[in-house]
């Protein structure tokens, strides 16, 4: 399976009823633009950017820095002459791009339109796997995500309280539907929580509907207290 490449130009895509209020860290947007994000984090950012104009502008700026840096680089010796390239252009022009037909993927009802890129990583008939009362997950285990510690969808029933946890590495959370509250505020569909390793938080899903999030971690979460610690291997978080 192939990843959608990072768009070359960013068009306005989806407008949410209320624009996202929680954004990825600028450092994360810079890494997206510079090509440094893991596959899972890139997927998550792609969805957020589809619905967040604020971050699209930031990424465009970070890419412009990349363009400036490219111009600033010394020149390596090219062994291919312009004539060689023209010969290749002739070949290309006589052979129009064969567009690999993407098989349309069915998007499940709970997945918003702007998060479409997530759909192709769902196996057909993939079911939510129950982790604990009120918490279930779908884990993406494709080899494409080998560099991520974990890429998962988490479904949290209304009112469920997650164990309080910190992180060894970084954790990116994108709310796909529903909402939750934690120490940083209330996060709704389209919002991203981009937590530094030293931040501990305890998300509680709001009472009106399931909260579904895409969570990408690059190191195991650290749970506090003995019960969550016992659950850790089981969670696989």
């Amino acid at each position: 399976m192939t990843f959608d490449p990072i768009a070359l130009t960013r068009e306005p895509e989806f407008r949410l009823n209320s624009a996202p209020k929680h954004h990825p860290d600028d450092a994360t947007l810079v890494s997206y633009a510079s090509g440094g994000l893991s596959a899972g984090a890139q997927l998550l950012l792609q969805c957020h950017l589809a619905c967040c104009e604020h971050c699209r502008e930031r990424v465009t700026e970070a890419e412009a820095i990349g363009g400036g840096l490219l111009e600033h680089l010394p020149q390596a010796k090219m062994n291919t002459s312009v004539d060689d390239i023209f010969a290749k252009l002739d070949l290309l022009d006589s052979d129009p791009i064969s567009q690999a037909e993407e098989i349309p993927v069915k998007r499940p009802d709970w997945l918003p339109e702007w998060a479409e890129p997530v759909a192709k990583w769902l196996e057909t008939d993939q079911n939510w796997q129950r982790l604990a009362p009120g918490i279930s997950q779908i884990k993406f285990e494709q080899p494409e995500f080998a560099k991520d510690k974990a890429v998962r969808l988490l479904k949290i029933s209304p009112g469920t309280c997650m164990p309080s946890h910190g992180h060894n590495g970084s954790e990116l959370t994108l709310i796909l539907s529903g909402s939750y509250c934690d120490e940083t505020g209330r996060l709704c569909a389209g919002d991203v929580a981009d937590l530094d390793p030293d931040i501990k938080h305890q998300p509680i899903a709001d009472r009106d509907q399931d909260c579904i999030c895409l969570i990408v971690t690059d190191a195991p979460l650290k749970f506090e207290g003995w019960i969550p610690k016992l659950m850790q291997p089981f969670f696989g978080l």
Binding site: L8, G35, E63, G66, G68, L70
Partner: peptide, 16 residues
């Protein structure tokens, strides 16, 4: 976008 930025993006995607 500036041409340099656009070409940077193409090169970056190829690298990824």
């Amino acid at each position: 976008a500036a041409a340099s930025t656009w070409i940077f993006c193409i090169a970056r995607n190829l690298f990824i």
